[in-house]
């Protein structure tokens, strides 16, 4: 099972950007379920804990949600190495900007910083094969963005990515409502990941949920390690 088909990019014809980006988008979405939810008093991210290596389960306790700072976090799908590298880069850039100007990046600025790097990757024929949800809370309130391989970002109320996203979306479309509280949002997100884990072979091994509110971050682990 091909996880990465980026090598195709350098050999293809003029229409590479359409065909192969779709190709990559497809491969990116393999093997993960991550969910993001914007609530009235904060944001929620949830993920499964499975990492796949081809047809095999590579790890049963992998992290897919990472804090950028005290009030921003990302959830990742796709190539783990690309995502980790990107996150380190964005954390470093964000910290430098924060130290220089004396106040933190907004969630949108962080998402844009991330997607600009992804865009330049795509434009230089070496894309970061990952899709990333950026969630957080700032002066403008709770925010949720989705950044993809091409460097596009979209502003979302709720979203999911990874191979389990079709199942997760099924539940989210039915259960998400405007004005939902973080406490309820967390259970909706966890249920969406659980639904995906039931039917998607690329997702499993427990759920991790991150709640971000004005009070700070709260991590919740459900199941995990071999279940």
């Amino acid at each position: 099972m091909p996880l990465l088909r980026t090598s195709n990019l350098t050999m293809c014809d003029k229409s590479w950007s359409i065909i192969d980006l779709q190709d990559i988008r497809y491969t990116v979405q393999q093997m993960t379920t991550v969910v993001g939810l914007k609530c009235v008093d904060g944001v929620v991210l949830a993920s499964d804990r499975r990492a796949s290596k081809g047809g095999m389960i590579g790890s049963k306790s992998v992290r897919k949600i990472y804090a950028l700072d005290e009030n921003k976090a990302v959830a990742i799908a796709g190539q783990l190495s690309d995502a980790n590298y990107l996150i380190n880069l964005v954390k470093a850039e964000a910290k430098l900007i924060e130290l220089k100007r004396g106040f933190q990046l907004t969630v949108k600025e962080a998402a844009k910083l991330l997607s600009n790097i992804m865009y330049s990757g795509m434009r230089s024929y070496a894309p970061y094969v990952t899709e990333i949800l950026v969630a957080g809370i700032d002066e403008t309130g709770p925010r949720l963005f989705e950044a993809d391989v091409s460097g596009a970002i979209t502003d979302e109320d709720f979203t999911a990515t990874g191979s389990g996203s079709p199942m997760a979306f099924g539940l989210l479309e039915g259960s998400y409502r405007q004005g939902i509280k973080v406490s309820d949002g967390a259970s909706v997100a966890a249920r969406a990941v659980k639904a995906a884990m039931e039917r998607d072979p690329g997702s499993g091994n427990g759920i991790q949920v991150l709640k971000i509110t004005k009070e700070g971050m709260e991590w919740v682990d459900i199941g995990g390690n071999g279940q």
Partner: peptide, 10 residues
């Protein structure tokens, strides 16, 4: 110095 600190972190 800040740049070096962040380079180390990356």
């Amino acid at each position: 110095a800040r740049l070096e600190a962040q380079r180390h972190r990356v």
